[in-house]
Design a protein around this nucleic acid. Sequence first.
DNA 1: CCATATACCTGGCAGC
DNA 2: TGCTGCCAGGTATATG
Length: 244
Amino acid sequence: MGKPLRWPLGVASQSLVGRKICGVRRRGKYLLVDLDQGLLLLHLGMSGSLNFAPTQAEAGPHDHMDLVTDRGVLRLHDPRRFGAVVWAPSEDSPQAQKLLGRLGVEPLNGQFDVTAFADALKKRQSAIKQVLLAGDVVVGVGNIYASEALFMAGIRPTTKAARLSRPRVARLQKAIVEVLTRAVQQGGSSLKDFVSAEGRTGYFQLEAAVYGRAGEPCRVCSTPIKSMLQGQRTTFYCPVCQKP
DNA sequence: CCATATACCTGGCAGC
DNA sequence: TGCTGCCAGGTATATG
């Protein structure tokens, strides 16, 4: 079914026959499907989507996995194949920790602490945007939301993380929580081919303050939004609202 | 330990 | 019209 994803499953798919799904969790951008024996780690990459249907339909070229249960079929569709499905014997196993072990704190579970965030940033000499993207301090902040959160916090993306004052770190922490919360409420961002489980695209991009708006007027001060490359990724910012 | 670069992949689009 | 080439995204891995 389809071409291989990013990594092999790590176990014969036959060995999953008869397993029971005990629960589903999330860690960073990984979905954890707990089984009565081991767990599955799913990642949607940038173009993956999950669909749950009563019966198994014919697979298209970008369908990579059907998890057939007695309640229906969970299908993973991923045109660009950045996604993954990996089986691990437990969350503490080397297989799982290789993927989950270095993840930073969850921004939306109430444990995203300003003091710990400030301490972590003090140790990093690279640009704040790159630290956010690295995912080892805080998870969930991808390229779009990094630009948006830094705009909301009034921080230039190139500012060295270690040089941010405590009040600015506090602003950034609040901005990250607010940007992600609003994005989730609106169903995520759709640039090209994102589709939710319900088949809807996200609407966050309709209100992006800076992302994808190079040359357009800042919604606050009307200065043209600038774009630049940081670590092979495009960053958008307002040169007036965001201070170094 | 930290920082930066690279690879992976393919649909969509600009430009010729 | 059809081709080429570039771009977008997340993150493991390699290299400095």
